[in-house]
């Protein structure tokens, strides 16, 4: 509960800080919404050229984009530091977190928000209502599965970025895998087959980030929802333990900084 309060405090604080540049705030959000609509162009052309393929049509693509952008948006909005953990470790900025009485990883994750990610959430909700699956109950399911997806994405980034504890600066390496999750997530599940499908539910968890949530919304199934829930909890615990274990290898750089 305390942690949830911390998250909300940081969120409010960061939003009010960003509102100092109000025009910029709205440009970033609307910019991201327009940006995402451009991505649909590819599918619009393809479906007008070849019709449905692999059992997927435009309304399914709207749903996939909705799930991915809402999950990604929630993740980056509330856990905005997830792609900076490596940098925080190797610059010694971590000192300022480990002196405070809060779970370190959680505190790092929530202390920054990404504004343009709010645009992703808004875009995702708009295209959800354009998909053939819009409805009140489905919307609730969307929010639930996307919240879990957001946690999975943050946990995945945390694990990759924590590799810096073990191998030194892992920034370049930890950029490729989240990119892979997003790249695979934006396409229909039926496109991928064989060994690649196993990879997408293990090493690169695009399956849990996009394919499974889409399946749950299309055809609600308590078993699949539980599977997603247990994966989310299990993977988050793993991310925290991995970070905690890595922390033992951390040596302070005696960096003095002021976090505003």
């Amino acid at each position: 509960m305390k942690n949830l309060k911390l998250l909300m405090r940081y969120f409010k604080f960061n939003i009010s800080a960003q509102m100092e540049y109000r025009v910029n705030f709205f440009i970033q959000i609307f910019g991201m919404i327009i940006n995402n609509f451009f991505l649909l162009f590819f599918w619009w052309v393809i479906f007008s050229k070849v019709g449905k393929f692999g059992g997927y049509g435009m309304e399914d693509i709207y749903l996939i984009y909705s799930v991915v952008t809402v999950s990604f948006g929630i993740s980056m909005t509330f856990f905005g530091n997830q792609t900076r953990i490596s940098r925080i470790i190797y610059t010694g900025e971590l000192d300022s977190y480990i002196m405070l009485p809060r779970p370190y990883l959680f505190h790092i994750l929530v202390s920054r928000i990404s504004l343009s990610a709010l645009g992703d959430v808004i875009f995702g909700i708009i295209v959800f209502f354009m998909s053939g699956y819009a409805g009140f109950l489905n919307f609730i399911v969307l929010i639930i599965v996307c919240t879990m997806g957001a946690v999975i994405f943050a946990a995945f980034n945390s694990v990759l970025q924590s590799l810096t504890f073990y191998f030194g600066d892992s920034t370049a390496f930890s950029r490729v895998f989240p990119e892979a999750v997003l790249s695979f997530s934006m396409y229909p599940e039926t496109v991928f087959n064989g060994i690649i499908k196993i990879v997408l539910f293990t090493v690169v968890p695009a399956g849990y980030f996009s394919f499974l949530p889409v399946r749950i919304i299309k055809d609600f199934n308590l078993y699949q929802l539980s599977e997603m829930f247990f994966f989310t909890v299990g993977f988050s615990v793993f991310a925290f333990l991995f970070f905690k274990h890595g922390l033992k290898k951390y040596e302070s750089g005696n960096l003095i900084i002021k976090r505003l």
Binding site: Y21, V23, N24, I27, Q28, F30, G31, M32, I34, N35, F38, L39, F41, F42, V45, I46, S116
Partner: peptide, 24 residues
């Protein structure tokens, strides 16, 4: 004129993606 130009950069990138013929 603007504090952050990343949104403009994103949108320019998308013009190349679409009418620029990146994907097809």
């Amino acid at each position: 004129w603007f504090e952050d130009n990343s949104s403009f950069a994103f949108i320019y990138g998308k013009f190349l993606f679409t009418v620029g013929g990146l994907f097809m």
